[in-house]
């Protein structure tokens, strides 16, 4: 994944447009099963993410959302179609903090891997700790942190990878409802610290099964069908920020997205 742009499977294709950070074309993925017919996880997914855009992908379990992110990050190769992406960092569903490192060393992992000296790496991570409400927990072991804090440390680790694309795989799904609502506000602020049009630096692909979360956070929402995952709808979220779950616009969009999801499911049946 060290390469800048990867284009695999088909003859090299550059990203769909110049302002495009991620472009997938007709991507399919089939898993061999131990017994029986091969399992098709993804069927003909095409999508592109503009530089600086926050795209949310929602869909029921088993629609291949994680596979999509792993394709973008280069952890999997597409069997069909092509994937082109700027370097992407993955924040996995499980925080995967390393228990033998303290919170700050965990957050600074990408810097250590890039051969930044430990002291300097910790110093840079500590700056983000202060911003993200983790000050005072620098030396804590991962198992001494709450679930919400662990997610934030994992998020800092992803940020410090320095990659222009962040892939967030259900970053809040393991949390209780209250922590989750808190962290949504925090995530929104962390991702959108500057006004959007002037902030083309970070591209974010957020995968979630929570439709409201997608609408509250994203610029655009893609709805995937159940297995095999296909894009069944695209919603532009042209709502004022910051948004909350009870906003009229959010509620209306949620109803539409849920209807689309239900439709996709019944088509499938």
């Amino acid at each position: 994944m060290a390469t800048q742009l990867q284009s695999l499977g088909q003859p090299p294709s550059k990203p769909a447009a110049d302002d495009c950070a991620v472009a997938l074309r007709d991507v399919g993925r089939v898993f061999d099963q131990r017994a029986g017919v091969p399992l098709r996880a993804l069927g003909d997914v095409s999508l592109s993410v503009a530089r600086g855009e926050l795209l949310a992908i929602v869909g029921p379990s088993g629609c291949g959302k994680t596979t999509l992110l792993e394709l973008i990050c280069g952890l999997q190769q597409p069997q069909e179609g092509s994937v082109a992406s700027e370097p992407a960092a993955l924040m996995p569903q499980r925080d995967l903090l390393l228990p033998w490192l303290d919170a700050l060393d965990n957050a600074a992992l990408a810097l250590r891997i890039a051969h930044v000296a430990r002291g300097e790496a910790r110093r840079r991570a500590a700056l983000l700790f202060a911003e993200l409400g983790l000050a005072g927990f620098e030396h804590a072991a991962p198992d001494e942190l709450s679930g919400g804090m662990r997610q934030r440390v994992a998020f800092v680790r992803t940020l410090l990878s320095g990659k222009p694309v962040l892939c967030l795989d259900e970053p809040l799904s393991a949390l209780d409802a209250i922590t989750r609502a808190e962290l949504q506000g925090w995530l929104e602020r962390a991702l959108a610290r500057e006004p959007r049009p002037t902030r083309p630096s970070r591209t974010v692909v957020l995968v979630t099964h929570d439709v409201e979360e997608a609408i509250v956070l994203a610029d655009r929402v893609l709805v995937l069908s159940p297995r095999p995952g296909r894009v069944v709808a695209e919603l532009d979220v042209a709502l004022e920020r910051p948004r909350v779950r009870t906003d009229e616009g959010v509620v209306a969009l949620r109803e539409r997205a849920l209807a689309l999801l239900a439709g996709a499911r019944s088509d499938d049946a």
Binding site: M1, L90, P92, R94, L109, S161
Partner: peptide
């Protein structure tokens, strides 16, 4: 060793 952790390290270019 947890394969997921190693995968994560790979995304960080380890």
């Amino acid at each position: 060793a947890d394969r997921e952790r190693i995968k994560l390290l790979r995304t960080l270019d380890a």
